[in-house]
Amino acid sequence: MQPFGLSFARALGAAALGVTLALPGLARAQQAPAAAANTFDAVKSRGQLVCGVNTGLAGFAQPDSQGVWRGFDVEYCRAVATAIFGDPNKVRYVPTTAQNRFTALQSGEVDVMARNTTWTLSRDTSLGLDFPAVNFYDGQGFMVKTALGVKSAKELEGATICVQPGTTTEQNLTDWARSNRIKFTPVVIERLEELVSAYVAGRCDAYTTDVSGLAATRSAQPKPADHLILPEVISKEPLALGVRQGDARFADVVRWTHFLLLSAEEFGITQANVDKLGNDPRPEVQRIIGKNGGLGPMLGLADDWAVKVVKAIGNYGEVFDRHLKPIGIQRGPNAQWNQGGLQFSPPFR
């Protein structure tokens, strides 16, 4: 818990945005567009990727007991760093709250955002951001205490519901309540830790967020069985990686890193066997591992970028099993397209 980080972080974020937008203008006619467009070169010359992650969400991004960031989203930071530098450790993690994440990205405080962020039309257009890839398909649900005896979200009439402000969750909740004619009292607290503790203390009857987040929170409770995730899923939440708009080259690297993890799973390329595929007869595998096709340099990366990424991170399924399976999240819509899921990689060609 960092109680003081709260208002400062936001004030700093806003101040940083103000300053970064106002100041770099001595030679602004040439400079300003370049500043937005060259994240790739900026990252390369800095020697480090700055990645915006959650402040702490089990399974997705959380520092372990040694202070090392771990989680599904963190692996994406590591994968992009490996693609660029060949080294998964060349990342600096910046924890961002639901409220300061966009400011952090807009102002250049972070290069890429891997932080359970829902891709929506208005965010895509008016925030100056792009969402290169959906790394997790999610939906919003409710969690209640088992003792409450509620079995369906439709029974939540009159309930007090804990929700994080400034999220699509908050808007989905009001939409859902309106269309189901349900009246509720919101309790909105920005910091996830405070919000969850309000729910656990019984300040709210229900806690709502993405189902993956509910599962993560439930798994972190002393007695997970005391909490029930209700069956209704009230929204579509494609959680996407985010970069600044107008930065096509860097967006391509991020997007194809995600597709690489997917394709690797599709073609059975794993952390264990990626070194031994030199003689694999399948042409697509040969192109992925950089034996031929010259795909890496088209992205501005090394020929063997894919080998290094899969060697360091594993494929999508391995990453999923490592971080999300232990907290009780099923593949569901995140299965491969040929397994009935939505995760689909365009061809490596």
Binding site: F102, G166, E170, Q171, V187, E190
Partner: peptide, 24 residues
């Protein structure tokens, strides 16, 4: 107030600027 979920002007303006993206 934002720390304890009382919706004052800062809390609501923050949510607003987050939803609209217009921080300044």
């Amino acid at each position: 107030a934002v720390a304890i979920g009382y919706q004052d002007i800062v809390s609501i303006a923050n949510t607003t600027l987050n939803q609209t993206g217009q921080a300044i």
